[in-house]
């Protein structure tokens, strides 16, 4: 995913003289092509993320389109106030990219996990929050981010994530993408956990349930029209995210749902619990531990339909 990010950024940077890349002392080789194309528009800002974010805001207020890149905790929680004041209060078009999101860096320990970023960033007025499920959505979202006039947070994985969209979808920020049609239950997800969600839909299909799958790549603004549709047509709506269960996509959906009348569908939330992962393990291990795997999701959804009907 990060290779696709670097590639797309280089492609866009070639034609757009407003595009500036700020990196927090990572991805040096990754951005060699960008540096070759736009040497004046690449800045290694060192291990100083607070400054980096404010510098980006100053650039954005001067007509540029800065993209800030480092590992997710350091480009979000580390410099939250700089995002709040510099980017959001000024409604400056800063694109903030967190790489290795969720449990991508499970083996690096909780300092490098990001299971709170969606929750805190979507609290900021005017902030768009975007979590592509694959590199196709990433490329489309990056181009769209540079085309709008406010701050945007983009949460991406690391490398080797499977491609979900075999053909490029119709894309707009804030518009969910239907990956699978279906009428009994709906699985709503954002980000790189999507392969598990699609596999869960397969499992449900084998159990005789027609499972719709929606990529809610934009957590904010939320596609309320699509939510309205799935909550009216499906008996169970399950929200899946590689993020804490507090305040992320499921939190956003629940907030929306609280204001709706006649929302009869049962809602389930799959995410990480209110704890740090103290033991070591791979992303695969961590997903299994927290139930972010196809068989667990399918089983829970199946049970919920039995309770509901």
């Amino acid at each position: 995913m990060r290779n696709a990010f670097a590639d797309e950024l280089t492609r866009l940077g070639r034609d757009d003289p407003r595009l500036v890349l700020l990196s927090g002392d990572i991805g040096n080789k990754l951005f060699d092509d960008f540096k070759a194309v736009a040497p004046q528009r690449f800045f290694n800002c060192g291990v100083a993320e607070g400054n980096m974010m404010s510098v980006a805001a100053g650039m954005a207020l001067s007509g540029l389109r800065p993209v800030v890149y480092t590992i997710t905790p350091f480009t979000t929680t580390r410099c939250f106030e700089q995002i709040r004041v510099g980017a959001c209060y000024h409604h400056a078009p800063v694109t903030i990219v967190g790489t290795g999101s969720g449990l991508s860096y499970a083996e690096l320990g909780p300092t490098h996990h990001s299971l709170e970023d969606l929750a805190i960033l979507r609290t900021l007025p005017g902030m768009t929050v975007f979590a592509p499920c694959d590199e196709v959505e990433l490329r489309l979202g990056l181009a769209a981010a540079l085309d709008q006039d406010g701050p945007l947070y983009m949460r991406i994985g690391k490398k080797g994530e499977p491609i979900i969209h075999q053909i490029p979808p119709v894309f707009a920020l804030g518009r969910a993408i239907t990956l699978r049609p279906g009428g009994d239950v709906c699985l709503i997800a954002a980000g790189t956990v999507m392969p598990e969600v699609l596999a869960a839909a397969d499992d449900l299909g084998r159990a005789g349930l027609s499972a719709r799958v929606e990529s809610f790549h934009t957590i904010k603004p939320l596609d309320e029209q699509r939510l309205d549709e799935v909550f009216r047509t499906c008996a169970v709506v399950a929200v899946v995210e590689e993020h804490g269960r507090i305040g992320g996509l499921a939190g956003a959906v629940a907030e929306w749902r609280a204001g709706q009348d006649g929302c009869l569908a049962r809602m389930l939330s799959f995410g990480t619990p209110d704890e740090f992962m103290h033991e070591i393990g791979s992303q695969k291990y961590a997903r299994r531990k927290f139930g972010l795997v196809a068989d667990h999701i399918a089983r829970c959804v199946l049970n919920a339909t039995r309770v509901t009907t």
Binding site: R41, F43, N51, M53, V55, G58, M59, S62, L64, G86
Partner: peptide
Amino acid sequence: AATGSLGHGLPMGLGMALAGRI
């Protein structure tokens, strides 16, 4: 720049100065 929280203005100014150079 909207300031008030300390330590933001100078870094934003650096961004503006770099933008001028670009």
